[in-house]
Design a binder for these strands. Structure first.
Lengths: 332, 332
DNA sequence: TATTTTTATGAAAGCGCTTTCATTATTAGG
DNA sequence: CCTAATAATGAAAGCGCTTTCATAAAAATA
C-alpha cells in the first residue's frame, strides 16, 4: 500500500499538493495535476481512509438504524439508500434495534461512537424527544415517521390518506359495513391509518361501531384472531380494512376456513403491498407506498445535512391503492 | 469530546497507560486502573475511532457484500450477522452488488478501500477465482456458496439434499411423473437442487425426460411460463418440484387458471420457505434452510479469521422439508 | 519598470491514538 | 544484603493524511 508521501516524491511535489489533487477542491496547475495523477496511477495509490478521517474528522460513513432488520421492506429500503450513498462515495453502517427501544438507543450510541457523519433512523421504539436529542448531536434524517420538531428531516408517508383510500375504495364498491383491523396503536402509522379509515367512514356518513375496530399486532395470527373476535362481538361486515398485508392474509385464511369466501362474501384491503401480495390468489388489493423514492429522498436529505450537498425535494409522500382481486361489490 | 491526553492528565498517568486500560490487554496495577477509569467516567471519554484505526491499522468494521439487497431473506441474514458482530463491537458496512458481477466487484473494491477488517460475501456474480483472489487480500467468508479452494471459509447449505428431499417426499406420496422447474442453471444452487431431483428420481428408478425439466429465472412469471411450456411439450405430470417459492406460486396460479387444482390434481414443492409460504393457502410445502444459524456461523468464522477469535463449528448445513398443504397423493 | 494582487506550491503542525523501548520500582533468588 | 528477574509505567516515535500559513512566481495595475 503506497502512501501520499511516495506519491509526492514520485511526482516531485509536496504531500499538500497530492492531497489537493486527491480532493479536487482547490485549484492546482494543470501540469502539476497531471504529474500527480500519473504518479497515483503508477503506484496504484489509494488514500488511507483512517488517516483521512483522523485529519479531516469525517468518516464518510453514514449510519443506519433499523428498528427491525427482518422487517418486510428493509431490503428494498437499504437497496436504495446504499445505492445513493455509494454513488456519493459514502458507506453505510447498519445497526439493528431488533424492535426494542433500548436496543435502538444502543444502536445510536454505537453508531455515534463510530463517528458516522450522519444518521438515518428508521425507529419506532425511540420517543420524539430522544430523536430530537439525537438530531442535536449529529445530522439526522428520520425515515417513515414524522417528528413535528424535525419535520424538515423526516421522510414520511401520508398514512391517513392510505387508510382513507383503502376505505374509500370499499365504499365506492358499495360496501357499508366495513370493519377494521389495525396494527398496534402505539405506533404512529397504525393510528394514522385508522384515522384515514374513520375519515372515509365519516365522510360517507357511515357509523363506526367501536366493536368494528380490532387492534392487532401486525402478525398473521392477529388477522385470524380478528375474524374470530369480530364474530364473537357480533359485528356484521362485508369488508375489512387491515393495517398490513400479513394480517389481511391471516384474516382471509381464517375466513375461508369458516366457509366465507373472499372476495365474494367479504372484501379485503391490505396495506404495504408486500412482495407476496401479488403472488397470492386472488391477488391482494392493498395500499402501496413509494418506498424507493422515499429512501432516495432520505439519502439525499442526509447528504445535504451532513455534507452540505445541494438539496431540494419533497419529504412527504402519498401512497396509492393497488387494485387486485380481493375487493368486489358486496353480495346484494 | 475529550481526548486521551486529558484523561491522562486528569488521572495523573501517561497516555500509554490510559491506552492500556482502555484496551484492557496488558496488565496495569489495580490502583492505577481505578484512577484511570474514574477519569474516563468523569470526562465521559470515548476513544476516537479514527485515531485508533490509524494507529492500530484496524477499523473494527466488517464489510458485507450482498448480491442483491432486495432479495428475500437478506433481512434475516443481516439481522443475525449484525447481531453477532455488534456483540463483538464490530460494525457492519453494507455494499450491494445489485445482482451484477461488475457491481459486486466494485462493492468489494469499495469496501476494501474503506479498510474493512474482513469481508462477508454473498455474491453469485463473481467467479470462484475472483473470490479466491479477494480472499488472498483480506479475511473473507463466503455465504451460501461453496468455493472449493476456500472450503474452510464457505458457509453453505446442501442444496443437493434439499432437491433430493423435495423430490423424495413426492415419490413417497406416490408420485411417479414429477416435473421440475429450476432457477437459472449458471447459479450453483440451482444446479445442485436439480442434481438432488435427479438423484431422487434415479434412486426410485424413475426416468427423467429432459422435457420435464424447465429452466426458469426464479421469478413468479417463470412458474407460470413453465406450466405452459410443460403443457406445450406434452409433459404429463402429477407433481412439480420448483427451484424457489416464487416460481412455485406462479405455477400454482397458472395451474389454477387452467382449472387444475393444487394439491388435488398437481402437488407442488417450493424451495426457500419464504415468509409468505405459510400465509398462502394452502400453505406451501417447501424446503427450509437454517439461515440464522448460517449467518451466525459466518460471522463467527469471520471473527476468527479477522481477529483471531477462537472458533470451531460447522460450515455445512442441511436443509429440511417443511410440510404444509401443497402436496397430496396423486389422484389415482 | 515598480508595485500590488493573485495564484500555485511547500513546510510543518497537528489529528488522537498505539506501541516500542527504556526506565524505575518490586520481588525473588542466592 | 546484593544481584537478577519481573512488573508497572512513561517518553516519544510514528500512523498517513489535511490544513494553515508563508513564500515564490506570475499576472495585473499604475
Amino acid at each position: 500500500m503506497s502512501t501520499i508521501k511516495e506519491v509526492a516524491e514520485q511526482a516531485g511535489v509536496s504531500q499538500a499538493t497530492v492531497s489537493r489533487v486527491m480532493n479536487g477542491e482547490v485549484r492546482v496547475a494543470e501540469p502539476t495535476r497531471l504529474r500527480v495523477e500519473a504518479a497515483v496511477a503508477a503506484l496504484g495509490y489509494h488514500p488511507n481512509a483512517f488517516a483521512r478521517s483522523l485529519a479531516s474528522n469525517r468518516s464518510h460513513g453514514v449510519g443506519l438504524i433499523i428498528s427491525h432488520l427482518g422487517g418486510p421492506f428493509m431490503g428494498r429500503l437499504m437497496l436504495t439508500l446504499e445505492d445513493v450513498l455509494r454513488r456519493h462515495d459514502k458507506s453505510l453502517l447498519v445497526a439493528s434495534g431488533r424492535s426494542d427501544p433500548e436496543r435502538e438507543r444502543e444502536a445510536a450510541r454505537f453508531l455515534l461512537a463510530r463517528r458516522c457523519d450522519g444518521l438515518l433512523v428508521h425507529a419506532d421504539g425511540m420517543s420524539d424527544e430522544e430523536l430530537e436529542a439525537l438530531a442535536a448531536q449529529t445530522p439526522l434524517v428520520v425515515i417513515n415517521r414524522l417528528v413535528p420538531a424535525l419535520s424538515d428531516r423526516c421522510v414520511h408517508v401520508d398514512n391517513v390518506s392510505g387508510g382513507y383510500q383503502a376505505t374509500r375504495h370499499l365504499i365506492e364498491q358499495g360496501h357499508r359495513r366495513i370493519a377494521c383491523i389495525t396494527g398496534p396503536l402505539w405506533k404512529q402509522d397504525a393510528t394514522q391509518r385508522l384515522m384515514g379509515y374513520r375519515r372515509a367512514m365519516a365522510q360517507a356518513k357511515l357509523a363506526v361501531d367501536t366493536d368494528a375496530v380490532f387492534e392487532g399486532d401486525s402478525l398473521e395470527h392477529s388477522g385470524r384472531l380478528a375474524v374470530e373476535r369480530l364474530a364473537t362481538r357480533g359485528v356484521d361486515y362485508t369488508a375489512l380494512v387491515t393495517g398490513n398485508d400479513e394480517m389481511a392474509l391471516g384474516a382471509i385464511a381464517r375466513l375461508r376456513e369458516l366457509g366465507r369466501s373472499v372476495p365474494e362474501e367479504v372484501s379485503m384491503v391490505g396495506y404495504d403491498d408486500e412482495a407476496y401480495a401479488r403472488y397470492v390468489s386472488p391477488g391482494l388489493t392493498t395500499v402501496h407506498a413509494p418506498l424507493e423514492e422515499m429512501a432516495a429522498a432520505a439519502a439525499q436529505r442526509l447528504l445535504a445535512l451532513a455534507y452540505d450537498r445541494p438539496w431540494q425535494g419533497e419529504l412527504r409522500f402519498t401512497p396509492w391503492l393497488v387494485e387486485r382481486g380481493t375487493v368486489a361489490p358486496p353480495a346484494s
